[in-house]
Simulated scan of single mutants.
Amino acid sequence: MQGIAAPQPYVIALFLVWAALMKLLSRRMRSQAGQSALARLVGSARAVPALRLVALVELAVAAALLLPPASPLDGAAAAALSAGFLGYLTYSHLAAPASSCGCLGAHSVPVNWRAFTRAGLLLAMGVAAIWARPQPPTWPVAALGVVEAVALLGLSPELDRHWLVPLRSLLVRLRDPLAVTSPQGIPLEVSLRLLYLSPAYCSASARLSSDVQDTWDEDGLRFVVYAARGGAAVFAVPLTGGDPSAVRVALVEEPALA
């Protein structure tokens, strides 16, 4: 039990200091306090003072967890604060389901299962911290602390824009969802993207009078047909390669009426 309890005061304190500094230093967070569930609970006029009071309580609990001497009361205080968070989240979800809780950032995110899980994890960590005693750092203890810190980060929807959104953008760039492994499976959007970048399209675009009217694949080329003034424009787009200059166009005139 002592091995599990050892990193809890440090992880909880780090999280509480972060949350408190966001409440005290973020002007945007204070400006949006009146739109959070906290304003529904204490009134819009008292939302910012209440936010600061919560921040001071968080700093006090964090200081108790970090400063000697270690006491079971420190963990009990952290557990009680987390239980209060759970109660507040429940109120927020029932009374103002579309509002953010104003817990960790200015980004407006309605209370969801991640916020409840985060508060539940903090409660469990606070209970475990009751048995925490000073001991020399070890790799298992440090690894457990890192895993818990990462879990708290992942369960904080207010912070998604700092890590989850960039990560998703990176995965999209790496996977290239429009890429395919065979010419027969190339989506039309890929060919059109190459077409729009080509000199052939630029030279003929002024004469086009419709969207794509017809397409077919033949001999490694995708033919794309547009209506054009006086006839039609037929573009030949290579199914392999990504050089826009390889695109060709033929302007087909309508036959004259006899």
Rank of each mutant, 00 (worst) to 15 (best):
A20L: 04
W113K: 08
S36K: 02
L94S: 03
G231L: 10
A143T: 12
G220V: 09
A119C: 07
G220C: 08
L164R: 13
L59I: 00
V141D: 06
A151G: 07
S209I: 15
L53M: 12
R52L: 06
W139I: 12
C202S: 13
A129Q: 06
L86E: 05
P137W: 15
L208C: 09
L159Y: 10
P69C: 09
R40W: 01
A6G: 03
A142V: 15
S156V: 03
L171M: 11
S209Y: 01
R248S: 13
P166G: 06
L51P: 02
P7S: 07
H107I: 05
L257N: 05
R173F: 02
A227C: 09
L121W: 05
F223W: 13
L239V: 03
R193D: 14
A47S: 13
L153P: 04
A39M: 01
C103V: 04
V172K: 10
V146D: 04
D217F: 00
A19G: 08
A246D: 14
A149W: 13
L171G: 03
P9R: 07
M22E: 14
S210Y: 02
Y88E: 04
E218L: 12
L178R: 09
P69I: 11
A142T: 12
L53A: 15
L59R: 01
A151L: 15
A132P: 02
S99R: 14
L171A: 14
A179T: 03
G105P: 07
R161S: 10
V249E: 09
A256C: 02
V224K: 03
S44K: 13
L171K: 07
L121S: 10
